[in-house]
Design a protein around this nucleic acid. Structure first.
Lengths: 196, 196
DNA sequence: GAAATAAGTCAACATGGCTGACATAAACGA
DNA sequence: TCGTTTATGTCAGCCATGTTGACTTATTTC
């Protein structure tokens, strides 16, 4: 909304200002003004801040943190993925992943199964218990998303999808598409599910 | 609190299932199906993951972290805000804020000024240096947002704004609006700006 | 003048990132 | 067949940033 140009507090403008020329776009297409872009950045911060609130509260009761949620989510939604896939998705080191994954396995939320074609691989699957927790964590987020999409108005789904996809690093997009396309693979029975 | 069920050794329990009834929405309006909502949740994760990447890399060169970015951003965009405002925005404790704020002040990115009507208050302002860093951190994010908005297509701005606003907790919305409406307040001269 | 408020500080602790080094099993290539 | 690469796991320690709790200092307010 309004607010436009942004006062510029002091004067003499300070050093940088090397990327943005001035205050007026002038040439080029009517691209979104800088000030408006920064508002979107802020809104994104607030939206994400609250998006994670509900699951965080639930996780606390289980002695887990947000890192556990991320792992459990992707294992549940794309079960059968490998450890290396998870590392790639989360963009963390295997040592970091190891810590939370181990806890989820030890406490019976996730099980591993050696890959059939490559037995070095450890494919990850949620247990019933893991699915239950994943769904419980997802529930408030789904409610929030559904109501926000509704509030956004008609056409929001397609536009938001394009927006979010374009926010991802270009080189990462094929990877993200491929992950999102991967349906959950059923756990092969017969392996030692060490429980259940 | 609660502590409820907790680990409970094996499964044989599958606690959840209490929030979601089944798999079919059946009645109600044609709301977005659960699976699609979870895709948006994933996309939001990927988008935010990459949204923070560029500034994180820059911050590293300065010996700062994401927490410094958040503080500097809000002080720059809404200069003159009080410490308590910042706590409210970030939803962290003052001890957490204190650590990063102190560093930003000590290193000349932010200055404080006692409030004129209430001298207990410490109003926060960016220095030239602080503004410069804030803008440098914002630049790649603005580029990303601008291109994502363009990719989203016509009408994206209004829809995205409504979506993001609705993603914020309802009780928080007035606060967020008020923050976003607050233009930067100029630093009153006479204080000691210790650099520039 | 007492109480409430804004801010700051110290200390201890938890989570979840990181690097580096190294181990094991399985697959692969020459 | 053997040596290398790959997928995974693990130990040890460090860092950033969140937490709680206790307490101090100004300043405003009643």
């Amino acid at each position: 909304m309004t607010d436009l140009n942004e006062p510029l507090t002091q004067e003499q403008k300070s050093p940088e200002a090397k990327l943005r020329g001035n205050g007026r776009p002038a040439r080029k297409r009517a691209s979104v003004p800088e000030a408006k872009l920064l508002e979107f950045a802020e809104l994104l911060f607030f939206a994400y801040r609250d998006f994670t609130r509900d699951p965080d509260a639930i996780l606390k009761d289980f002695g887990f943190g947000r890192a556990h949620h991320r792992v459990l989510h992707f294992v549940n939604r794309h079960s059968g993925l490998r450890v290396v896939d998870l590392l790639d998705i989360l963009t963390i080191t295997k040592q970091s992943l190891s810590r939370v994954l181990k806890q989820l396995i030890d406490q019976g939320y996730i099980v591993q199964q050696a890959g059939s074609s490559d037995r070095r691989e450890r494919l990850l699957f949620p247990t019933d218990r893991g699915r239950a927790l994943a769904e419980r964590l997802a529930a408030p987020q789904s409610v929030r998303l559904a109501s926000a999409l509704k509030a956004a108005g008609p056409g929001a789904e397609a536009i938001l999808r394009r927006f979010l996809e374009a926010m991802v690093n270009a080189e990462e997009r094929p990877k993200v598409s491929s992950i999102m396309a991967s349906s959950p693979v059923p756990l092969k029975e017969g392996g030692k599910e060490e429980e259940a």
